[in-house]
């Protein structure tokens, strides 16, 4: 009894395995060459600085930036600023996530939710939200609140849009299949709708975090007395371009780190897709 089933499947597999291989026309370049031009630019920067062509008060040399970074790190200034900025992002992202998930799930699951929630969110989305800073200052003052609010707002929109779309795209065939098995509405939500929306939601998370860092950088321009933005503004007042660049590099590093974190999360949560 078992034999015909197995032979049938084997036939399919073996026929797929005989696709002819195509020889690449040119020899592939080593991946290391991709570092050639960035390193050359860095050298050019160092040379122009050392020879005085690029003045120190416009842009410090890479060596000076490195030295300033070590200075700021050992004095503890950089660490303190880092912690303050990270805290702003974490609180802002947490607040934004609660809002985006609540609205996205409401709009995605119920027809009334979609009719009532989606239009105003779509309208607000078209506002350039960084333009809201004057209002935020009037509403929240110039302390931590407007900075956190800006991060929360910037983070919430991409997450909302993707959660909503992800839920809407759930395959109705899977919902039917589980309904036949006797799954209630809530069980279908847990076993089908939310897992189906997860890939799209993670895309929203990644986009949202990118916007969150951008919002932080802009928000920290508002009368900050601590954090990376404060460190940069302070350095500007003393024409310390080396310290400005250090701040920028840390911002970039933070952005890359969160991106890597979400990618790792995706790899773990979406294992079932990568095996295709």
């Amino acid at each position: 009894m078992s034999i015909p089933v197995l032979t049938a499947d084997r036939t399919r597999v073996s026929s797929a395995a005989v696709t002819p291989t195509r020889k690449p026309r040119r020899r592939a370049l080593s991946g290391a060459w991709r570092w050639a031009s960035p390193v050359a630019l860095l050298l050019l920067w160092q040379v122009t600085s050392s020879t005085g062509i690029l003045p120190d008060d416009k842009l410090s040399s890479p060596a000076k930036v490195l030295a300033a970074g070590v200075d700021l790190a050992t004095s503890g200034q950089l660490g303190d600023a880092f912690v303050v900025s990270l805290r702003r992002v974490l609180i802002g992202v947490a607040v934004g996530a609660v809002i985006a998930l609540a609205l996205g799930i409401t709009a995605g699951l119920s027809r009334w939710g979609a009719v009532l929630v989606d239009p105003p969110v779509q309208m607000l989305r078209t506002l350039p939200f960084l333009g809201l800073i004057p209002l935020f200052i009037i509403w929240f003052g110039i302390g931590e609140e407007p900075k956190i609010a800006l991060v929360a707002l910037g983070f919430a929109f991409p997450l909302y849009l993707n959660v909503y779309a992800g839920i809407r795209d759930t395959d109705p065939q899977l919902l039917e299949a589980t309904a036949v098995l006797g799954f209630t509405r809530w069980e279908r939500l847990a076993h089908v709708v939310l897992p189906a929306a997860l890939p799209q939601a993670l895309v929203g998370l990644r986009q949202g975090l990118g916007v969150a860092w951008l919002s932080l950088i802009v928000g920290e321009q508002i009368n900050a007395d601590a954090g990376l933005g404060y460190l940069i503004n302070n350095a500007r007042d003393f024409l310390r371009t080396d310290q400005v660049v250090v701040g920028l590099v840390v911002y970039a590093g933070l952005g890359l780190a969160t991106d890597a974190l979400v990618r790792a999360l995706e790899g773990r949560a979406l294992r079932w897709r990568s095996t295709r």
């Binding site: 065939q173 899977l174 039917e176 299949a177 589980t178 036949v180 098995l181 006797g182 799954f183 076993h191 089908v192 897992p195 189906a196 997860l198 079932w272 897709r273």
Partner: peptide
């Protein structure tokens, strides 16, 4: 009790094969 097998298998791709089967036990 009623069970259905559709034209498409309609398995939940995020559940391993045995878990898809045990979905039937609800």
């Amino acid at each position: 009790t009623v069970s259905v097998a559709f034209q498409q298998p309609r398995l939940l791709p995020w559940r391993r094969v045995w878990r898809n089967v045990s979905l039937g036990l609800h």
